[in-house]
Design a protein around this nucleic acid. Sequence first.
DNA 1: AGCTTTTTGGAATATTTATTCCATTATGCA
DNA 2: TGCATAATGGAATAAATATTCCAAAAAGCT
Lengths: 276, 276
Amino acid sequence: MTDDSIANHGSAPATVDEFRERLTQITPDLPRRLRQCADYIAAHSDRIAVSTVAELAAGADVPPSALMRFCQIIGFSGFSEMQKLFREAYAPGWPDYSTRLRNLKEGGAGSPAALLAEFIEAGRLSLESLAKTVDETALADAVQTLSKAETIHVVGFRRAFPVASYLVYVFEKMSVPAMLHDGVGKLDHRFALRPGDAVLAITFAPYSEETLTLAQDARDRGLPVIGLTDRVTSPLARTSSAIITVPEVDFGAFRSLSATIALALSLAVAVGSARE
Amino acid sequence: MTDDSIANHGSAPATVDEFRERLTQITPDLPRRLRQCADYIAAHSDRIAVSTVAELAAGADVPPSALMRFCQIIGFSGFSEMQKLFREAYAPGWPDYSTRLRNLKEGGAGSPAALLAEFIEAGRLSLESLAKTVDETALADAVQTLSKAETIHVVGFRRAFPVASYLVYVFEKMSVPAMLHDGVGKLDHRFALRPGDAVLAITFAPYSEETLTLAQDARDRGLPVIGLTDRVTSPLARTSSAIITVPEVDFGAFRSLSATIALALSLAVAVGSARE
DNA sequence: AGCTTTTTGGAATATTTATTCCATTATGCA
DNA sequence: TGCATAATGGAATAAATATTCCAAAAAGCT
């Protein structure tokens, strides 16, 4: 390490974002031990706020002094200054969210507030788990396929229906030709499927017969089918050209749909902008 | 404080839940300064993991030694032991969730994965903010009103429609008589409103004319109207007997609906069980 | 291979932070 | 009102933690 690069002093990152930027920027040309620090910190930045130098150093498998040097190279005066940044940035997430949740639950099991707390929690967990498990490739494939389609046929019944209807609403707002197969009047819309179209089918266990049928139908005619479902083993997988799974956490017999809607929304917006 | 009560030693809470339980249990008969500690800690337990004794003591407006005593009364050997509990319990929420989000975003602005990350984030924020701002009284009132209604008329268009339709789905599953006013075929269902019924109206800015009209109509006939909307200044407030607001965070022009659905769901389930 | 420069580990030190102790003040009781 | 008991604040001490420094090892260069 030359004197020049230590001259980063005095320009400490002021936000977590700045920190990450600097981190990725300097990581490539760092000697072995310092690289270990950078890698470990990048993967566990959430623990900086609650750990000691010794603990982090042990995690990165380097002596404490190496971690110390690392902090200084990034621009901090030392570890404490870096930790301060993370301790302060730690508030915005949940100023006292968990406390509040607990209070809500104390209204007593079955009280509306307690129920709400449970659903909020389920929603949050679903979103987090979606972030962790989403298959980016499948998502990109789906976007690709749908943006090339003439008309997008969206189908979903029962609890998938709200998602389907929201999708169509968003497609409309973005001027993407889309059709909602909602089964109103028991009309069978399958003749609306035309060459060049694509189907976006949404269903969760217990899988809706109508949805599967429409997907199969589209498949038979050679149209691409994008499946939005809960497991890779879903019957929808057999008929779909791309399948995206959403890990939704239930509370009781009902699911929050948070993750499903977030996914549907990003799908729709991505398709909308790809088509412009 | 007698010697007996200090004898809590050796039975330190092993989980955050146990901690809270003990806290509420002992708070009532605590002298002034210790009570201050208990209150402050209860309201800010999320900051224990990242603060020093001095900081927390300053927050509670007591000398550090008082906070120290407080820790021991709860059963810990000292502050450090208490902090340890919170530092360890801090992981379960997001093993590396934020890291993951960041990676998703790095696919580039506009990429499907980046969009998804944004929507996930918006959903999470919405849920948290719902937890913090929900009006428990209004919620309880709404449940009360709806459980006494013969038939519940649910109305919501555009982006409120997915919520309305999900509500009706859940009501059906719970055998609650409910009717979705969806405007299919431009049919005007308002004659369906009968004495003893109630209306659950959902609308967000820009408020849908049809929804407001139906709410007004119900009001004129003396039926209770529950409003689910985005601000207390919503036009829906004028016609509603109870109004519940949902702080939904938008990303771009679209909203995640996570908070709205969580709220709707708990409303429906609470009503469903109240009617049994 | 021999010399120079960079990197490394760990022991020594400085600083911060937790914890205890006790003199003082307040409170409850006869 | 006076005595006993509990509560309090702050200064002194102990412990943990961060930080520096330097000798030794490794890497790069001629």
